[in-house]
């Protein structure tokens, strides 16, 4: 069957199935199981209303459980197993973790991930804050925001191509077609550099791609927060003779601290999962490995599910504090 047709059929089946499920399960509950008539009408309505939420929730809960909750447990289990010839698995305790800890590539990934975690959220938030503050003060601010926000719509792979062109290198006797080398030579550099193969620095060049994408997100959220600041506080500061920088750093930033933390943690999670950019631009060569790509390597290139799962658990471990913090905040807010 043609995939497009199959897709159309799936939409119809999926949507129809969902609507059908919700409609008929409700009908069944109200008309057959607990009809709202006869001697037990009142009791039946109450019973039906106890069950109904679960009818509404069931498909979502099933999907969440199967596609997100179960894998966490299963990956934890697999990270302590080893495949033996014949398709069987054997419990090996923490051996996979031990083996992982003995690999220099793993420590390289950890080291790079820490760098990513420090630099990308910081730069994205800083640039986002700057863009938000500046664009709120000029008339063409909305156009500026649109343009800075635009990379959000571009795929990591697309961004990788865009930035590969920026970092492109030609032999010294030819014209440079990459902007970075052209500028480098223009400002007195002697020889074009192959930016993506310079250990340590190439990590920064990869991070710039993510900063470029995430700044728009930070800007949008922070801009809304800046607008929510009560006018009076700013006015009072102006009357007291504060200069614009003082107003920004001493009056505005402290008031949006909460939002800055939210932006920071959200970008942190994106960073922890960063895969496509490294995969497409260097594939972890030249000391640019990161955890997500290391894990992918183990799972699908080396076919080592045990160590791969252990790598995935490390990512999960790093996400967990943020997860707990988010849940805690959400509960506070509901109360």
């Amino acid at each position: 069957m043609h995939p497009a047709l199959q897709g159309l059929l799936t939409i119809i089946l999926g949507v129809g199935g969902c609507v059908g499920y919700f409609y008929f399960s409700n009908q069944f509950l109200d008309k057959v199981l607990f009809p709202a008539k006869g001697p037990n009408a009142g009791k039946n309505i109450n019973r039906a209303n106890v069950i109904r939420p679960w009818l509404f929730l069931f498909p979502a809960l099933a999907a969440l459980g199967l596609y997100l909750a179960y894998p966490v447990v299963e990956t934890l289990r697999m990270s302590m197993m080893e495949r033996v010839p014949g398709g069987e698995q054997r419990f090996v305790g923490l051996d996979n973790y031990r083996q992982m800890a003995s690999e220099p590539k793993f420590w390289e990934a950890i080291k790079n991930n820490i760098m990513w975690l420090l630099i990308v959220p910081a730069l994205s938030t800083a640039f986002g804050l700057l863009a938000a503050q500046l664009s709120d003060r000029v008339r063409w601010g909305n156009i500026a925001k649109s343009l800075i926000f635009m990379p959000m719509a571009i795929s990591f792979v697309g961004a990788a191509v865009i930035w590969k062109l920026v970092y492109d290198t030609r032999p010294v006797e030819q014209d440079q077609i990459g902007v970075l080398n052209a500028m480098y030579l223009f400002f007195g550099g002697s020889e074009p550099n192959t930016w993506l193969t310079m250990p340590f620095w190439n990590n920064l060049f990869l991070m710039i791609v993510l900063v470029w994408i995430q700044t728009g997100f930070a800007m949008v959220i922070l801009s809304a927060a800046l607008r929510g600041i009560p006018e009076e506080t700013v006015e009072a500061a102006v009357i007291d003779g504060a200069n614009p920088f003082q107003i920004f750093f001493k009056i505005k930033v402290p008031q949006i601290k909460g939002t800055i933390v939210v932006v920071w943690t959200t970008i942190t999670i994106v960073v922890l999962k960063v895969f496509d950019i490294v995969f497409a631009m260097t594939n972890g060569q030249w000391e640019t490995q990161v955890l997500a790509n290391y894990m992918y390597d183990k799972l699908f290139r080396a076919n080592d599910w045990g160590v791969g799962s252990a790598g995935a658990m490390i990512i999960m471990l790093l996400v967990t504090p943020i997860l707990i913090w988010n849940v805690y905040n959400a509960r506070q807010e509901m109360n």
Binding site: Y296, L299, M316, L323
Partner: peptide, 17 residues
């Protein structure tokens, strides 16, 4: 609370299972 928690679970964990 569970939904909020699952928001940040990395999908990397889900690949092999």
């Amino acid at each position: 609370a569970c939904v909020v928690g699952l928001l940040v679970v990395p999908l990397q964990l889900a690949l092999i299972p």
